[in-house]
Amino acid sequence: MIRPDAPVLLEVSDLHARVEEQPILKGVNLTIRAGEIHAVMGRNGSGKSTLSKVLAGHPAYTVTAGSVSYMGSDLLELAPEQRSRLGLFLGFQYPVEIPGVSNLEFLRVSTNARRAQRGEEELDTFAFEDLVRERLKVVQMDPAFLDRSVNEGFSGGEKKRNEILQMALLEPLVAILDETDSGLDIDALRIVADGVNQLAGPENATLLITHYQRLLDLITPDFVHVMAAGRILRTGGKELALELERTGYEWVDQELASLGREPAEVL
C-alpha cells in the first residue's frame, strides 16, 4: 500500500559495506515507508543478502560509508539485539539450528525482549504459551515444534515457518525476509506467503529478498528493486518483476557496461 504521506520507517543512503577485504555494497539507496512491501531481486552475488545482514547488524560485515536511519535513529549505531527490540526483523535464508536450546524458551525470551522495549509486561510461561498457540495458526505449525530444540532437525519448510512464527510474535515494524521462498515446495510457499500477508499492515513494512517471481505471485509488492554490483540499478512497480521473468538479467550487464563497470564485477 503506497501512501506518500506515510511515515518513513527505514532510509538507506549511499550504503557501502564489505566482508573481510571484499567490498560488496557500493552505494545502496532505499526508502521504505509504513504500509509498503518492497522486493529486492537480483542475481547471486549482487549484494541482496549482504544488504539484509548489514541492516540486521551481522558482525562479519563492516559498513565503510553511508547511513541508515530507522525510525529516526541511526541504525548502524545499534547492536543487533537492540535493532530487534526496536522492531527490525530479519527472516534468515538459513535459520540456525541450536541444539539443546528449547524452541519455546527461545521464542519466549525473544518475545519478552521486544515487549520490554515497548513498555509491555513480560509474559510468564503460561501466558506465553497461550500467545504462541494463537500465533502458530498464522503458519499452520504443529505445536510439537515448540518442544524441540531451535530448528534442530526441522525440514527446510519447517524452519521457514518457524521464522514467520517469530515474526508473528515479535510484530516487527520492518521485516526483511531473506529468500524466505528458497527450499520451499508450493504448499509450504503458500503457507509462508499467507503468513506474511496476514502480518503486513498499514503500520509496518516488508522487504522481500528473492530470486523468483513465484513468491511475488503470492505477495504483491508495491516496489521492485533490481540489485547488481552492490547497488540498486532500477526501481519499478510489480510489473518490473514480471519483465525480469521475461527478459532475464542480460540488460543488467549492458546497463552496468554503460556505467563503466565490468559484468565480472557483478559476481
Binding site: H58, E81, V96, A113
Partner: peptide
C-alpha cells in the same frame, strides 16, 4: 548472531548457548 537478531543480548545469548550445549 541468530539469538541476538531476536533481541537477546550477547551475554544472555552466550549463556543460552552454553546451557544448551
Amino acid at each position: 548472531f541468530y539469538l541476538q537478531s531476536r533481541g537477546i543480548g550477547a551475554e544472555q545469548a552466550s549463556r543460552l548457548l552454553l546451557r544448551g550445549y
